[in-house]
Nucleic acid binder design. Structure first.
Ligand code: SF4
Ligand code: SF4
Lengths: 137, 137
DNA sequence: GATATTAGAGACTCTTAATGTCTTTAATAT
DNA sequence: ATATTAAAGACATTAAGAGTCTCTAATATC
């Protein structure tokens, strides 16, 4: 019952890309920044690409950058791209109008609302303002 | 990123015990009701006991019943007893005043507030009213 | 067009946590 | 004493996450 490390890496990567919006950044640089192997991070980046949150260009001088079409990206968008759209509580039986599910779903919904209201760009700018780039603290 | 099955079993068990408040119920009956092995459910019940949510009496005519001292038990209480008190998002680094953690913690807090506000007894009574005991639907 | 560079895909291994079983021990009522 | 029941612990199984390695495809540059 914990968000995967991949989600953490994805969030850091996205915020970094937010602050580099003009230029493309290679997986090499992104991996070094987080002390990860490039091939592993590559899988995470591919998920983000498929979700339309970032754009990738292969070949020399290629790399990743924030999606042109999707400028307002929330925390929930990133989490959803990595974790998929499964529910926290997912009883396999699904009795019609289950009271337990109702409670759990509502609770999860409250969390998601909060995550959807927080935009990466705001956090990125706040972090930049603090001028301790890389630590986001 | 999902609540464990054990949490599901625990919730069902607790609601069942809520509706049997007078008498003690053995693990045998509780296990059959959910089609589980008694030994496995036993572990879950032990967790609930240690958390003070239910009381156990060994020996003949023994079994489990809702705690006398803790009458207002919330969904969060049960989840906490089973899943422990770990955070959904738990970066191992913990930079001081981390902005990402702030967002994630707040979101999780919103969920927990909802779960803490829902009492088992209310759901149990509602289920009983619907008269489809066992299905809670 | 050849070459260097970079993303993407897939097979594979390793680690960890959840799930579940079996056996033994301790407590209690009758 | 005996039957009954919870508790504890060792153990096996399964599933998911984390991570590596290799090969392929696309692109810029020369
Ligand atoms: S009542 Fe709800 S949680 Fe319980 S088994 Fe039916 S669907 Fe699942
Ligand atoms: S900035 Fe926050 S999330 Fe990122 S490494 Fe530091 S503590 Fe962890």
């Amino acid at each position: 019952m914990k968000y995967s490390n991949a989600t953490n890496y994805a969030l850091h990567t996205m915020i970094h890309l937010m602050l580099q919006r003009e230029s493309t950044v290679g997986v090499q640089e992104l991996a070094e920044m987080q002390h990860l192997s490039p091939t592993y991070l590559s899988k995470i980046l591919t998920k983000l690409t498929k979700a339309g949150l970032i754009e990738s260009t292969p070949g020399a001088k290629g790399g990743y950058k924030i999606s042109r079409t999707k400028d307002e990206i929330s925390f929930l968008d990133v989490i959803h791209a990595i974790e998929g759209d499964t529910n926290l509580f997912d009883c396999s039986i699904h009795h019609e109008g289950c009271l337990i599910e109702n409670v759990m779903r509502q609770a999860e919904e409250n969390m998601k609302e909060e995550l959807a209201s927080k935009l990466l760009i705001d956090i990125a700018k706040e972090a930049e303002a603090k001028r301790e780039t890389g630590k986001l603290s």
